[in-house]
Design a protein around this nucleic acid. Structure first.
Length: 218
DNA sequence: AAAACGGGGGC
DNA sequence: GCCCCAGTTTT
C-alpha cells in the first residue's frame, strides 16, 4: 500500500490556510443551504472570480427564489441580471434550461444524485460534486484545476484530466477528507501552490512534496 | 502582448 | 481528442 501521507498533509494544510489571513475558499457563501441557489450559483461561478459571481448571484436571487421564478424570465432579462460573469449568454441559457428540467423531471427540486445532476445542461463533474458536498452535505469529491494540479504534484495520482483524478481519489482518499479537500487545496493553490512559479519556499509541506510537474517559471 | 484563468459543451 | 467561449489578471 502506497503511503500517500493524507493524514500528515491535509490537516497541516487546513491549519495553514486558516492562518493565511485570507478567507478559505468555500465557493458557497450564504445561500441558505438552498440546493437550487447553490446549483445556480455554482454554474454562474464557472471560470469567474468569486466577487464577480457574488455580485451577479445576489442580483439574480433578489428576483429569483425558485425554478418557477427563473423560467418566467426571458434569456435577455437573465443576461442583464448576471451580466458581470464570464460566458453570461451561455450561462443565462443554461440556467433557464436547468430550471425547466428541474420542474419537468424532478418536481422542482435539485436531485441529490451525481448521475442525475450530470444530466443537467451546464453541469459537469466539478459542479455536480460541489452541489453534493455543499448543498446536501453528502459524499462527493469536487475536483477542479487546483485539486487536479496539486494531487498530481504531490504524487497522489498520475492523471491528465480532472475526471481521472476524481476517480483515483475516490479509491485512495479517506472519506473524512472528501468534503474538505476542495476548499483546502483551492485556497492553498491560489496562494502557494500556484500553476506557474509556486511559492515552494513558503510551503508548509515542501519536504513531503516530490514536486511532480512543477515549473519554476514559464 | 500573450497566456492563463476556480469548466463544460459540441463536435 | 480538439476547439470554443468572455472578460480580467498574470506573466
Amino acid at each position: 500500500m502506497k503511503n500517500y501521507n493524507f493524514d500528515k498533509i491535509l490537516p497541516k494544510l487546513e491549519k495553514f490556510v486558516q492562518n493565511l489571513g485570507v478567507p478559505v475558499v468555500t465557493r458557497i457563501k450564504d445561500r441558505d443551504f438552498d440546493p437550487f441557489k447553490i446549483l445556480i450559483g455554482t454554474i454562474l461561478s464557472l471560470r469567474t472570480k468569486d466577487e464577480t459571481t457574488e455580485e451577479a448571484a445576489n442580483r439574480l436571487f433578489e428576483v429569483v427564489k425558485t425554478p418557477e421564478d427563473l423560467i418566467k424570465l426571458s434569456e435577455k432579462d437573465i443576461e442583464k441580471l448576471i451580466y458581470p460573469v464570464g460566458f453570461y449568454k451561455r450561462k443565462a441559457k443554461q440556467i433557464k434550461e436547468v430550471a425547466k428540467t428541474l420542474i419537468e423531471k424532478y418536481d422542482g427540486r435539485v436531485p441529490n444524485d451525481l448521475e442525475e445532476l450530470l444530466k443537467l445542461k451546464g453541469v459537469g463533474r466539478k459542479t455536480a460534486n460541489l452541489v453534493i458536498t455543499e448543498a446536501f452535505d453528502d459524499y462527493g469529491i469536487c475536483v477542479d484545476t487546483h485539486v487536479h494540479r496539486i494531487s498530481n504534484r504531490l504524487g497522489w495520482v498520475k492523471t491528465k484530466n480532472p475526471e481521472q483524478t476524481e476517480m483515483e481519489l475516490r479509491k485512495i482518499l479517506p472519506k473524512k477528507y472528501w468534503k474538505t479537500i476542495n476548499p483546502i487545496l483551492v485556497t492553498f493553490g491560489q496562494n502557494i501552490c500556484k500553476p506557474i512559479s509556486p511559492l515552494c519556499s513558503k510551503c508548509p509541506i515542501e519536504p513531503l512534496c516530490p514536486k511532480i510537474g512543477v515549473t519554476k517559471s514559464r
